[in-house]
Simulated assay, not measured.
Amino acid sequence: MAESATGVEARPTKQALTRTRINRCAMQLTRDRGLDGWTMDELAAAAEVSRRTLFNYFGSKVDAVLGAAGSPTRREDPVALAAFATFVEGGPTGGLVADLAALARPILADEEFDPQNVAMRRTLLTCSNRLMEAVHQHFEQTADEIAALLLRRDPDLGEDRAHLLVRLLVGVFDSTMRVYLAADDPTDTDLVDLFVDQLHAAGELLGR
């Protein structure tokens, strides 16, 4: 698990655990019946939540299967909002790689990256064009928002280079997930720390 700024181990919130449970149930239903073989009411029953609670987390079956938690740049968590504001102002260190690493913590800390869930989601994506299209749309929206964040920090960066940087970050995260899933016991691996390590490694390689 990730540590907070105070060094205390940060545990997933109740909301994060509920979102993870719903996501896992949605993937299991899709694996067993196909995406069109179940309803949101059946998902609510499987996840042991009310229909109203379910729709507070996910607006559609596709979102529930993908675990789409919404845009990372629009979260209302005060820690995340403070981190975004600090990043846009050029902090906390003034170095882009170090500041991106600091920004990753509030984005990833509230997520539950269960290895079995990650592996199951990847399998489902290879079997459904509908899910793949949804992933692409979500990625493009998130990429645009992160690029806009980078441009607010440094307008001279330019849109092309901002989007290039976003693609590089996606590559770093994909590498992080590969290492994470290949670990003997991924549950003992802090995904946030692993991403930060991979990000610094990429920065060193590109700085050669």
Results as ranks from 00 to 15, higher is better:
31 R>G: 01
196 V>T: 09
174 D>M: 12
176 T>V: 05
70 G>N: 04
37 G>R: 03
9 E>P: 03
19 R>M: 02
186 P>E: 12
198 Q>P: 07
87 F>V: 09
47 A>H: 04
117 N>G: 14
64 A>L: 01
84 F>K: 10
60 S>M: 11
40 M>G: 09
176 T>F: 01
33 R>I: 07
142 T>G: 02
66 L>M: 14
141 Q>N: 13
59 G>T: 05
110 D>E: 14
155 P>I: 03
179 V>Y: 09
188 D>K: 15
175 S>Y: 01
189 T>C: 12
128 S>T: 08
108 L>Y: 02
97 V>C: 05
113 F>C: 13
36 D>H: 11
138 H>N: 15
106 P>Q: 11
99 D>L: 03
180 Y>M: 12
18 T>C: 04
145 E>A: 05
6 T>R: 11
185 D>R: 13
111 E>I: 13
40 M>H: 12
95 G>K: 10
58 F>K: 10
91 G>F: 08
172 V>G: 00
23 N>Q: 15
44 A>S: 04
80 A>M: 09
147 A>L: 09
133 E>A: 14
169 L>Q: 10
50 S>W: 05
57 Y>R: 02
36 D>Q: 14
130 R>K: 00
147 A>M: 09
91 G>L: 14
114 D>C: 07
28 Q>S: 01
48 E>T: 12
9 E>D: 06
17 L>N: 03
156 D>R: 15
182 A>H: 08
130 R>W: 00
78 P>R: 11
137 Q>H: 07
192 V>F: 00
22 I>T: 07
55 F>E: 03
74 R>T: 06
131 L>I: 04
86 T>N: 11
15 Q>P: 08
160 D>N: 14
39 T>W: 07
197 D>W: 09
99 D>I: 02
54 L>Q: 09
153 R>I: 05
126 T>C: 01
145 E>H: 03
27 M>L: 12
88 V>N: 04
62 V>E: 00
124 L>F: 13
88 V>P: 01
100 L>G: 00
68 A>H: 15
28 Q>H: 11
97 V>M: 14
203 G>M: 10
